[in-house]
Design a protein around this nucleic acid. Structure first.
Lengths: 345, 345
DNA sequence: CTGTTAGCGCCTTCAT
DNA sequence: ATGAAGGCGCTAACAG
């Protein structure tokens, strides 16, 4: 740590006591205006800033928020982190970011580290793999506020902030239907998280509302553990789809990675998009426009999700809303239409 | 902060003194094996973990690294952060990430915050806009180790880790030349950072080595402040290029954002890539394959850059290499050939 | 081998 | 209006 000027230094320099300095800097009423000014001037001039460690130790707070995400290297996540970052620095909190890499075990390790590190609160978007939330619950029980963002679960009672995945999926599927597609496949992840089921349900509802029968063979859940595995899974899924007797004429993909990888694979396998098969998917990349063809997407307000979640966590930490109950906020998604889902000819 | 079990709690429970517990947990040789075991067992059972704040206060260390980058929401940066994150957690350091948004003023604010927060060291990839590095230098002088990564500058004497930008640019330009292109434009940023000049020099060298004259009108430096501005700048640059009497047949782009935006713009303006104009650029996106057309890229070992930089910083913090001098490491880039730079017909 | 003590920088009573 | 003293949890020097 940098050896900056301390209260003691100022006290010595100004021939005052440490507590006088402390009070002056905290604008206590029991310090004379003149003294106060003198102290403030000196402090500013010498770049005094209170020692985080000492203050934290004293107050039993760290002004630090722990964040657990699947991976840093992911568009949507990066945008959410950006929002979390903004809200946190606005309220002068630091954030510590941990990556679960979709592994339940790693996720628990992250939480343990955060706990040991003494964070004031935790923001988490659970790993796909996670099914057991006991550790998280025990943290919460031991007094650490937890807020869920992006991927929400029912097993824990707290504030939750995510996208309206049901609606987003519904609208994406409807968009395909309105453009003349009837045999719509859905590629999703094999996780118990509601982010997957909500999107699946939105898809099913759109089919139902349009009098289209849901065909189980057009639904595939991909294994997300390891990038290669995902790619292989996807390739197999696509090949299976396309070798069906009654093959799909469109695909609706449920996650950022699946969407972009799917587009690459369709190109690689020689299918024309959207002539052979149309495509729309959840993803936030600003490169959708650059793709071949430009890809229709369901955009999530990722920045806002992160920002709101962080604000809610901080309010929990500071117990501003002592009496208010917990709430779940679902921010609206937006279908961005591009060439990959052009009306069927 | 979570109110966990403290040394005192353990001492009381085991009827031992606080310092005995402390020593036992630190595996001091002056504690009996039996006692040690008893303490360790109790500690594990009750999830003891030392209070970060107390330890930090005592040791004058925070085991925290401050990281300053232009933006979280950027492929290359995210990959570097991933590497920084890995190296840091491997050595049980926390990281605090700050964003400069390419602004010198914001960057200084980030550094001030980090300083006030009491970080043990700083990793920084300077903002494009920054020309004055005095604050950074003053931090270093006051005893905080600083390591530069990604974007390196001469003004500060320390460890530096980046990509071999000269070579990457040279190879990219050579690739175009070898594929028959002769009128190669270069789109860069208007920054004094060597990341820009190195790439420019690599480009020039490749031209020179091939007996091609450098044409100033084929070089444009874009203003990076604000995403819209960049887009407008780029569009204007491209239009200017294409209205030249002797217009370019290829473009080599110098940054991630310029590369991808340039491809979008060329498509938007109706130019065929690579028939009307070929394209290769620095960028790490794994979506290069998905683009229209698949884009040839210069890939930087971003993860490794971050990881190595963090390792070097930690070794500075821990003064492991007290006598060794500072070094600048340039990791090799890799030209990934795709359709956008196909041999000229 | 174990315990006592002091102190890291800050804040908070309680005196003066 | 200012100062003295104690303590947050931990470590390290010094005693026993």
């Amino acid at each position: 740590m940098n050896s900056s000027v301390t209260l003691r230094d100022i006290a010595k320099a100004l021939n005052l006591s440490i507590s006088t300095i402390s009070k002056a800097l905290n604008d206590s009423h029991e310090i004379g205006a003149e003294t106060k000014q003198k102290v403030l001037d000196y402090a500013k001039k010498h770049h005094y800033s209170p020692n985080r460690m000492a203050k934290g130790l004293k107050e039993g707070k760290t002004r630090t928020i722990g964040v657990v995400v699947c991976s840093l290297d992911n568009n949507v996540i990066a945008q959410m982190l950006d929002g979390i970052h903004k809200a946190s620095t606005d309220k002068s909190y630091q954030i510590i970011i941990m990556q679960s890499k979709e592994s339940e075990k790693l996720e628990t390790a992250c939480l343990e580290l955060l706990y040991a590190g003494g964070v004031d609160g935790i923001l988490i978007s659970p790993a796909y793999e996670t099914v057991n939330f006991n550790y998280l619950l025990s943290l919460q029980k031991s007094g650490i506020p937890v807020v869920l963002f992006d991927r929400l679960i029912d097993q824990i009672h707290t504030h939750k902030v995510g996208a309206d995945n049901f609606k987003g999926a519904y609208e994406a599927t409807m968009h395909l239907i309105n453009n003349g597609y009837r045999k719509i496949a859905h590629l999703n992840t094999n996780t118990i998280l509601s982010i997957a089921t909500d999107r699946l349900n939105g898809y099913k509802q759109a089919l139902a509302d349009s009098g289209i029968e849901f065909r189980p063979e057009l639904l595939r859940s991909c294994n997300y553990t390891g990038a290669t595995t995902l790619n292989e899974n996807l390739e197999q899924a696509i090949k299976d789809y396309m070798s069906l007797e009654d093959k799909p004429d469109a695909i609706f993909t449920a996650t950022d990675q699946i969407s972009t990888k799917c587009l690459v694979l369709l190109n690689k396998l020689g299918y024309k998009i959207p002539e052979d098969i149309a495509l729309i998917g959840f993803t936030n990349t600003d490169l959708a426009e650059a793709m071949n063809p430009p890809m229709s997407t369901v955009y999530q307000p990722a920045f806002e999700i992160g920002q709101l979640a962080a604000e809610k966590l901080i309010s929990l930490i500071e117990r501003k809303n002592f009496d208010e109950g917990f709430e779940t906020v679902m921010l609206p998604t937006e279908v961005q239409v591009r060439a990959s889902s052009q009306p069927k000819k």
